[in-house]
């Protein structure tokens, strides 16, 4: 808990629940690119759990699925967006 009163996130308790546990997913397949893309930021990096709120078990499955999809060029390793 953040008990430093001046911290901006003090009392910030909104906990995101894991979308995979909610949907009852048991295995995240690397071919579901439309699902994987939602857990990857615009540079192609895997989003951390604190942002997506995914459970640890599903985050591990998600990262292996993303890495397999990257290997098969289904999703890019890095997307250079023209800054």
């Amino acid at each position: 808990m953040i008990n430093n009163p001046s911290h901006p996130k003090k009392g910030h308790l909104k906990s995101k629940d894991c979308r995979f546990t909610k949907a009852g997913v048991e295995y995240i397949d690397y071919k579901q690119t439309d699902v994987l893309e939602r857990f990857v930021n615009d540079q192609g990096k895997i989003l951390p759990r604190r942002v997506t709120g995914t459970s640890a078990r599903h985050q591990r499955q998600l990262s292996t699925a993303v890495k397999r999809a990257r290997f098969l060029a289904l999703i890019p390793y890095v997307t250079e967006n023209m800054r």
């Binding site: 979308r19 995979f20 949907a23 009852g24 997913v25 048991e26 295995y27 397949d29 439309d34 699902v35 939602r38 397999r68 290997f71 098969l72 060029a73």
Partner: peptide
């Protein structure tokens, strides 16, 4: 050019049967 072989364990097999039946849990 490239290949990827995966061995399916029990969890993945259940996923495969579900996919066959078509009622995969929809995440989004």
């Amino acid at each position: 050019m490239r290949y990827l072989t995966l061995k399916y364990d029990a969890k993945m097999l259940r996923y495969y049967d579900l996919k066959k039946k078509g009622d995969l849990p929809v995440v989004f």
